[in-house]
Each structure stands twice: as structure tokens, then as C-alpha cells.
């Protein structure tokens, strides 16, 4: 039986960790940059990421920030993310950058983010995870399907925990992520990882 170890929600209105609002200072920068400066600050690769990756990355940073031995390499944690739009925002941006035939210089660093699963890789690289990483595009936010897919990942005996959840980026004012850290039952009273538990959180 799997349990929900911790969770985080980020939307343009703010970030919420374990149900508690994450304080963030006011500035002219967008929320994700403010969260980066306030809670991360030592990973310049953040600025190279596309918005979807920034969203997933920042959520994972806040979710994992107090984890002991966080950066020790491990193979037992999967990163499994779900989205509806995937990399569509970056796909569109890339298309715009190559639209003018008289100024046709495709940018490798823009193109590289036209894959939705890059966000799982960014999280894995940052945290030295060498387990499964996967990204699924769903027609809608479907907790039952997400639970089924995550549970399937645990059929691999190597997988003992999973950083999973919903990551959706449309534009600067329309984005949302809810990430979960899921692991085996540890008899500490953590909620069971099932549809009842996450339905409220995923629709936070």
C-alpha cells in the first residue's frame, strides 16, 4: 500500500506546501522567478528552462527542500508527471522563432524544450535520480488514471518512491502544478495514496 508523503500546489496565485501558503516576496518578476530567487538561487540552469520545466522544477524544489541526503544518487525514485498541454507553449514559441524565412536560425536551446518529458529529466538531473522518468499527456486531469499509472510503476521492484503529479503550463497567467511524493506505507499516519485522498488536492 502506498502513502502520500507530501504534496505541493503552485498556480499563478501562489504556492501551497502541505496546505500551507508558501511566503513569497513581492517584486516585478513572475511568481516562478520569485520562488527561485527566494528558495533555490544556486541553479542557473533554471533560467535556460522553458516555462513548463520551470514550473515542475520549482515545485519539486519546494517539495524536496527539507529531504535528508537529498542529492545522494538514487535509483529507487521514479519521476512520473502528467499534463494536458505538455510542451505546446514551447512548441508555439519555437514555431514563432523560425517563422521568418529571411531570419531562419533555429535555436537549439529553444528546440530542446519542444518535448514534454524534458521536465522529468530536469528534475531527475537536479536530484541525481536514476530511476524511471516518464511524462503522460492526458485528455483531462484524471486522478484515477494517474494513480493507476503511478501504481504500475511500483510493480518494478526497483521503484520504492515516486515524485509524481500534474504539471500544466498554458501561458503566464494560466498554469498549475500539483506534485506528490509517494512512497510505501511507513506507519506514521500518512494518508493512503488513493483517489479519495488526492481528488481534493489535485483539484485544489
Amino acid at each position: 500500500m502506498l502513502t502520500l508523503q507530501s504534496w505541493i500546489h503552485i498556480a499563478p496565485t501562489g504556492a501551497c506546501l502541505e496546505g500551507h501558503s508558501v511566503p513569497v516576496t513581492d517584486s516585478n518578476e513572475g511568481l516562478l522567478k520569485r520562488l527561485y530567487h527566494q528558495y533555490v538561487g544556486d541553479y542557473p540552469k533554471f533560467f535556460k528552462m522553458d516555462p513548463l520545466c520551470r514550473l515542475g522544477f520549482i515545485a519539486s524544489e519546494l517539495l524536496l527542500q527539507n529531504t535528508p541526503d537529498r542529492f545522494s544518487p538514487r535509483e529507487d525514485r521514479a519521476v512520473i508527471l502528467f499534463s494536458h498541454s505538455g510542451s505546446f507553449a514551447s512548441d508555439s514559441h519555437y514555431q514563432q522563432t523560425i517563422a521568418d524565412p529571411n531570419d531562419y536560425f533555429p535555436s537549439p536551446s529553444v528546440f530542446v524544450y519542444t518535448l514534454a518529458n524534458i521536465v522529468t529529466g530536469e528534475i531527475a538531473i537536479r536530484n541525481h535520480y536514476f530511476g524511471e522518468t516518464s511524462c503522460y499527456l492526458l485528455n483531462r486531469k484524471d486522478p484515477a488514471e494517474m494513480i493507476a499509472i503511478v501504481e504500475e510503476a511500483f510493480l518494478d521492484p526497483q521503484t520504492r518512491s515516486a515524485l509524481c503529479g500534474w504539471v500544466e503550463y498554458v501561458d503566464e497567467t494560466h498554469y498549475e502544478t500539483t506534485l506528490f511524493l509517494v512512497g510505501p506505507e511507513d506507519h506514521t499516519g500518512k494518508p493512503i495514496w488513493n483517489q479519495d485522498t488526492i481528488n481534493d488536492l489535485i483539484n485544489f
Binding site: P44, K48, F105, P106, S107, P108, S109, V112
Partner: peptide
């Protein structure tokens, strides 16, 4: 600067552009 392989490709584009 700790640049990576994608940065190298970007520099090639910069040189041409």
C-alpha cells in the same frame, strides 16, 4: 561559465546569425 553541449550548438547559431 560551465556551458554544456546545447550551449555549444547555440554558439554555432550565434556565430552565423
Amino acid at each position: 561559465l560551465g556551458l554544456d553541449s546545447i550551449d555549444a550548438l547555440e554558439l554555432i547559431v550565434l556565430m552565423e546569425k
